[in-house]
Structure formats: structure tokens, C-alpha cells
Amino acid sequence: MTTTMEPTELDAAPPGVVPDLPPPGKPDHDDLTPALRLMVDELDDVYGGADCPSIDKTAERMREKTGNKSWDSRGQVDKARAAYRARHGIETPPKKTRTTTPAPTARTKPPTPRRTAVVRPDPQPVVQATPVPVVRDEPPPAPVEAVPQPAEPVRTGPVRRLAVWPVMLLAAPAFVAIWGGWVGLGKLTGFGTVNLLPGIVAEGGWATIDSAITLPIGVETYGAYALYVALSGRVPARARAFAKWSAIGSLLVGALGQVAYHQLVAAGVTAAPWWITTLVACLPVAVLGMGAALAHMVREED
């Protein structure tokens, strides 16, 4: 019986030429199934010769890229990864082995560590050195002579206050000048004789007064009283502040009234301008409002 052998790639090659053979350890994958060969080609397209990750990550990525249902099988994915690594000469990393520690059973108990007594030496008493005081020869201090102090006079009786009658003497001429200025300005601005009880008391009777006297009584009296309240120190802070500024304003208004009266008289004016008449006519109302407000504030508690 004669056996006929088919020619191989070595027989077909010309003499002296070595045909391209697959390197050792790298098969040409002719033994792979068409499905595996397709999966290896898809790995080539995606990873391009680089190593592929774990089975789960490779399968998840290849399903997204190709939509091939063969990537759902872990066995097929493992075979395709092995063939892909063999094609490109990638070494398969060794599988990690897990070392498990046997759990202690009910019969076997872990050995109990022995307790060894630690012998500690007795503490030695600490001896503290007592500092020795250093005695220095210092000269005795010089004697200090006592300076006699003058004896303060002891007051046994009540303290006498300063007399205020000189102030009253000084205020008398100022009162006359202020009174005359305000009354004269009232005459120039329409203040005059008024019957307070018309129809009850006849004209010119005891109910008839000159309304010009209301200006000095209202403005100057309020200014003096507000100044007294501000300087007394016996009222709440809000009342003291209001009294202070209202007293200053009242005194300024009084000074302006005196200036206006003397200017009008010196110019020979018999009737004040309308704006001066308006301001003077509002003074009694302003004095009444400030006086009422100050009376309420003085009675407030802190």
C-alpha cells in the first residue's frame, strides 16, 4: 500500500527561502470556531494589541461596542481573551490565590495567653535639697523723718451756700430791657389791648389786658426754667437733653426778638414786615408745646 503525502509550505518554498511561519507559542487560531475568531478580531479592533482588562469589564465594553451576544458568556469571553493575548504575545497574569484562615470550631478554642507577673523595683525616695539662704551684709536703711501734715479744719455746722442776691441785682436791668423790647415788638406786630371776657365785662374793665406782655412772660420764662432743669441733674437723660436744647433755642429767639425790635424802631418803622409778624405770632404756641413736653419728660422715670 502506497501513502501519498500532501505538499507543505516548506516543500512549496523555493530553495534557500524560509517561509513565514507563526512564532512558537503563537498559534494561527485555525482551530478556533468562527464565533471565537470573530470575538478575537473585535478585541483587535477595540484594544489594538493592548492588554484587555478583566472578564467582566471586557464583556461589558465589547457588548457596548459591538452588540455581539457572544460576549454574554463568561466562558466565551475567557477563551477570546486567551486567544487575543496569544496572538499578540501578551503574558497572562497569574491568578491570585486566596489564603483562607480556618475558623475556630466549637471544639477547638484559641489558646489563652499566659499572664506573666512584672516585677517592678521599689521606687527610691527622692531627696530634695533644701536651699541654704545666703546672708548678705547690707547697710541699715536710713531713718525717714516724718513730715508733719497740717490738720484739716473740721466743719461741724451746716454748709453755707453762696448768696444769689447779686445775680438778682444784675438780672433786674436785663429784665427791664427784655420786657420793654418784647412789649414794643408786640405793638409793632399787632399785639395790643384785648378784652378777655367780651359781653361779660365792659370794655376797659378788669378783663381788658395788653396781649404784648405775653411775649416776655412766655419766651423768657420758659428759657430760664428749661435752663434750670438742664443744669439740675435731677431729671432723666431724655428730659435733660430736651431742656438743654430748648433753653438754648429760647434764648436765641429772645435775642433775635430784641435785635428785630431795635432795628425797626431805629428805622422809624411803625408796623413790622409780614414775616416778622408771622414768626412773633407763632411764639406763644411754640412756648406752650415745649412747656407741655418738658413737663411730661420731667415726670418720667429712668
Rank of each mutant, 00 (worst) to 15 (best):
276 I>A: 02
16 G>D: 07
21 L>M: 13
77 V>Y: 00
136 R>M: 14
108 T>W: 07
202 A>F: 08
163 A>N: 15
199 G>L: 03
149 Q>V: 14
108 T>P: 08
32 L>K: 01
116 T>E: 12
57 K>P: 07
257 G>T: 04
125 P>A: 10
40 V>K: 00
50 A>P: 03
216 P>M: 02
288 L>V: 10
192 G>V: 05
55 I>Q: 05
39 M>N: 00
297 M>G: 10
105 T>S: 12
53 P>Q: 04
54 S>Q: 08
300 E>I: 02
53 P>M: 04
101 T>Q: 09
208 T>I: 06
283 L>Q: 03
241 A>F: 08
146 A>Y: 12
35 A>N: 06
61 R>D: 10
180 G>K: 12
117 A>E: 13
176 V>M: 12
254 G>L: 03
91 E>F: 06
194 V>W: 06
126 V>E: 14
98 R>F: 10
121 P>F: 05
61 R>A: 15
265 V>D: 09
1 M>C: 09
282 C>R: 11
300 E>V: 04
115 R>P: 05
230 A>P: 00
202 A>G: 15
135 V>S: 06
6 E>C: 10
92 T>S: 14
33 T>W: 05
106 A>P: 15
45 D>K: 10
129 A>K: 11
90 I>P: 01
269 V>T: 13
58 T>V: 04
216 P>G: 01
171 A>P: 05
42 E>T: 03
171 A>Q: 13
85 R>H: 05
30 D>N: 13
246 S>Y: 02
101 T>P: 01
42 E>N: 06
127 V>Q: 14
301 E>T: 13
275 W>G: 08
257 G>I: 01
107 R>G: 15
84 Y>S: 03
7 P>N: 09
18 V>F: 07
113 P>D: 07
237 A>L: 12
38 L>E: 11
75 G>N: 14
256 L>C: 15
66 T>H: 02
72 D>H: 13
69 K>N: 14
251 L>V: 10
251 L>Y: 08
166 P>N: 06
260 A>Y: 06
14 P>T: 09
254 G>E: 01
272 A>N: 00
255 A>V: 14
254 G>M: 02
265 V>S: 10
51 D>F: 05
172 A>P: 05
17 V>H: 12
222 Y>G: 02
222 Y>E: 02
64 E>M: 09
18 V>M: 07
44 D>W: 02
74 R>L: 07
281 A>G: 07
13 A>V: 01
198 P>K: 02
2 T>R: 12
76 Q>T: 10
142 A>T: 10
284 P>Y: 00
245 W>M: 09
158 P>T: 05
300 E>M: 07
133 P>I: 08
189 T>A: 04
256 L>H: 13
29 H>D: 15
160 R>S: 13
288 L>G: 11
88 H>E: 06
28 D>V: 10
242 F>N: 00
16 G>W: 04
169 L>V: 13
95 K>Q: 11
137 D>T: 15
257 G>C: 09
184 G>A: 11
138 E>W: 12
122 D>L: 12
213 I>P: 02
